[in-house]
Design a protein around this nucleic acid. Structure first.
Length: 511
DNA sequence: AAGCCACGCAACCGCCCGTGT
DNA sequence: TACACGGGCGGTTGCGTGGCT
């Protein structure tokens, strides 16, 4: 911007900008076209031209207006800076939410995302996202709020769910039609992007959601995917064959990754530090990552573990959470649930050669997130809680990364919460179900040792309904990953369905 | 107060792709 | 089929700003 003012008196043609000029191809008269920052004079010329001739045919701009800019440069300048109704300034909370939601579904389709954000340009969104992504990666935080992943998944699962993101023209073109699992690739991309950035992110095999999903989309395994493919209670109780082959949760309460059948698992396990001494420092990070202890002894036939952390589980859904309705199905018996998840005989989501690759996607994501959570907690919270399985607010507040995170989202801090924005171990959010504030969440401490709450664990682990299963997916996000910023952010919005209410921008109309 | 540095942001460029002729 | 054109996106660069010394 300032560059423009600096050059305001510069001539439009042939000003001295070393290396910024070139003979544009296809330019006929060999006119030297200018590169570099636009001047105010150039802006005036371009605006005037567009006002007279309208948008499009950008190569004609140079021809008829005398601008020494290539058509493309003119288009970009107009689209990103000069066109009317451009919204400048920081992104609002709504916009941020929208971006996250859209990116979860679309990936790096900036222009398409911009269509849902009136006044915003693709470039602006891209810059915002990249900056945000860097920040979150540095903080060891997930790019997507789990709720968005859930919803995106649900959308893809239902095929038409993306209708929430609806262009003003009433159709969603290829996004709707191309593939419904684009979101998963987006997540995969994010996952891969983290490789090399986050030292604890395991290398992923060349898994591509798109490469594998077409084989199953539309087929029962896909249609049923994780939710409805979760073995039902009765079936599971009869289970005698473990798809994993062993019957233990590891001492940290995580699934034994080493039993997964791809190379990824081993690497994940390594990055997980499962065999590190931390394994035995159970309470250290298990207590931190997973706020809800499943501290009964009868939850499975799993190999008993001595450490308190054995009962530590990933994020748990409680009945209070309204993320999804649990329906009328009574919660299954507690002592079945975990094994249900692990020992089911070739469940469709098992990481087996014949299983649904889509489930692998989410499991990989799950593993990744858990790995992140573990390392995150190891780095930040270890030794903070030696005797208690509950991380204190102070503990969490002391996390530098978390503090950073808190700073990032401080605007959304919940003043009511004892933890404010740092309460990432709090109860899972209720995303966009009723627009309620999250203020009503109970700190997780109040759940500790609460049998009723523990029962809800089972609800998560052995859902029967589709919705329940979605929450099961949510379970795979450790509490530590359920960044409160998202929750706080979303709390300000009445659901995540704004997209469909936003008219397509001019960009879309041009398309 | 001044200098240095890291970071975020705005903007541009090059490559690529899709579409129309 | 080839070409021109518009558009999308990743990468890069430069500037401004805030924190630290």
């Amino acid at each position: 911007m300032s560059q423009i003012t600096h050059d305001i008196d510069d001539n439009v043609h042939g000003e001295d900008q070393t290396g910024s000029q070139l003979n544009d191809e296809g330019n006929g008269g060999g006119v030297v076209l200018k590169k570099g920052p636009w001047t105010a004079a150039e802006d005036v010329i371009l605006v005037d031209y567009v006002n007279k001739h309208g948008e499009g045919n950008w190569n004609a701009v140079q021809k008829y207006s005398g601008l020494s800019r290539c058509g493309k440069s003119c288009r970009l300048r107009w689209a990103n800076h000069l066109r009317p109704n451009l919204k400048k300034g920081a992104f609002t909370a709504e916009e941020e939410q929208m971006i996250a939601e859209l990116h979860a579904k679309m990936g790096n389709k900036w222009a398409r995302m911009a269509a849902h954000l009136p006044g915003r340009t693709d470039n602006e969104i891209k810059n915002y996202w990249n900056t945000r992504m860097k920040r979150r990666q540095r903080a060891g935080l997930p790019l997507y709020p789990p709720e968005i992943v859930m919803q995106a998944f649900q959308d893809s699962k239902h095929g038409q769910g993306t209708g929430e993101i609806n262009d003003g023209d009433g159709c969603h073109h290829d996004f709707m039609e191309k593939n419904n699992y684009e979101m998963h690739d987006a997540i995969f991309d994010s996952l891969k992007e983290n490789q090399g950035i986050l030292p604890f992110v395991p290398e992923l095999s060349d898994i591509s959601a798109n490469s594998i999903l077409p084989n199953v989309l539309g087929s029962p395994p896909y249609c049923n995917f994780l939710p409805s493919t979760l073995p039902n209670q009765d079936h599971l109780q009869e289970t005698s064959v473990s798809f994993i082959g062993s019957n233990e949760l590891n001492t940290n309460g995580f699934y034994p990754f080493n039993h997964f059948k791809d190379n990824t698992s081993g690497k994940i396990a390594e990055s997980f530090g499962l065999h590190s001494p931390l394994d035995h420092g159970a309470s250290s990070y298990g207590s931190i990552c997973y706020s809800h202890s499943l501290s009964n002894d009868n939850y499975s036939t799993s190999k008993p573990t001595s450490e308190a952390v054995k009962s530590e589980l990933p994020s748990l859904q409680y009945p209070e959470t309204e993320f999804v309705s649990w329906g009328s199905s009574p919660p299954p018996p507690l002592n079945e649930s975990i094994d249900v998840l692990i020992h089911s005989p070739q469940p469709p989501y098992a990481l087996d050669s014949g299983s649904s690759p889509l489930s692998c996607c989410f499991l990989n994501e799950f593993l990744y997130q858990q790995a992140k959570a573990l390392n995150y907690s190891k780095n930040n919270w270890s030794d903070k809680s030696s005797s208690s399985s509950i991380a204190t607010p102070v503990d969490r507040a002391e996390s530098s990364a978390l503090n950073m995170y808190e700073t990032e989202w401080e605007d959304y801090a919940d003043p009511v919460s004892p933890f404010g924005a740092t309460s990432i171990l709090n109860e899972h959010p209720v995303v966009g179900t009723n627009g309620k504030s999250w203020d009503g969440w109970e700190p997780f401490q109040t759940f500790s040792g609460n049998n009723e709450k523990l029962q809800s664990v089972d609800q998560v682990l052995a859902p029967k309904s589709e919705n329940q299963s979605m929450s099961l997916l949510n379970l795979t996000w450790p509490d530590v990953l359920l960044a409160s910023d998202w929750h706080e952010l979303y709390s300000e919005h009445d659901g995540m369905n704004h997209a469909g209410m936003i008219d397509a921008s001019d960009d879309v109309k041009r398309q």
